[in-house]
Amino acid sequence: MQSISAQHNASENWQKELAAVIDTIRLPSFGGMLEKFLATQCHFDTMLVVTFRKSLKPLILHPTNPAEQSLTLHNYINRAYILDPLFNAIRSGTLGEGVSRLIDIAPDSFETTKYYQSCYKEFDLIDEINLVIELDPKVSCAISLGRRTSRGTITRPELNRLNTIYPVIKSLIRQFWWSQSQEFVKYEKSEGAMNQAISTFGSGVLTPREQQIAGLILQGHSSKAIANMLDISLGTVKVHRKNIHTRLNTSTQSDIFTLFLAHLKELDPTTS
Score class of each variant (00 low, 15 high):
residue 9 N to K: 15
residue 13 N to R: 09
residue 14 W to E: 13
residue 18 L to I: 08
residue 27 L to N: 11
residue 29 S to R: 13
residue 33 M to E: 08
residue 37 F to N: 02
residue 40 T to G: 10
residue 44 F to P: 01
residue 48 L to E: 09
residue 48 L to C: 11
residue 49 V to G: 02
residue 57 K to D: 12
residue 59 L to I: 09
residue 60 I to C: 09
residue 61 L to C: 05
residue 61 L to T: 01
residue 67 A to K: 12
residue 78 N to H: 14
residue 83 L to K: 03
residue 85 P to V: 00
residue 85 P to S: 00
residue 87 F to N: 09
residue 93 G to H: 01
residue 99 V to M: 03
residue 100 S to F: 11
residue 105 I to N: 04
residue 106 A to T: 04
residue 107 P to K: 01
residue 109 S to Q: 06
residue 114 K to F: 09
residue 115 Y to C: 00
residue 115 Y to D: 01
residue 118 S to Y: 15
residue 121 K to V: 07
residue 130 N to W: 08
residue 141 C to N: 02
residue 144 S to E: 10
residue 154 I to H: 00
residue 154 I to T: 03
residue 155 T to V: 04
residue 166 Y to P: 03
residue 168 V to N: 06
residue 171 S to G: 10
residue 174 R to T: 06
residue 181 S to I: 07
residue 192 G to A: 13
residue 193 A to V: 02
residue 195 N to K: 08
residue 204 G to E: 03
residue 210 E to R: 09
residue 211 Q to C: 00
residue 212 Q to F: 08
residue 214 A to R: 00
residue 217 I to L: 09
residue 218 L to R: 00
residue 218 L to S: 06
residue 221 H to I: 07
residue 223 S to A: 11
residue 224 K to M: 13
residue 228 N to S: 14
residue 231 D to Q: 15
residue 237 V to P: 02
residue 237 V to G: 01
residue 240 H to Y: 06
residue 240 H to N: 15
residue 240 H to Q: 12
residue 242 K to E: 14
residue 244 I to D: 01
residue 245 H to G: 06
residue 246 T to A: 15
residue 255 D to S: 03
residue 256 I to Y: 02
residue 256 I to P: 03
residue 256 I to N: 02
residue 257 F to P: 01
residue 259 L to S: 04
residue 260 F to Q: 00
residue 264 L to D: 05
residue 268 D to P: 01
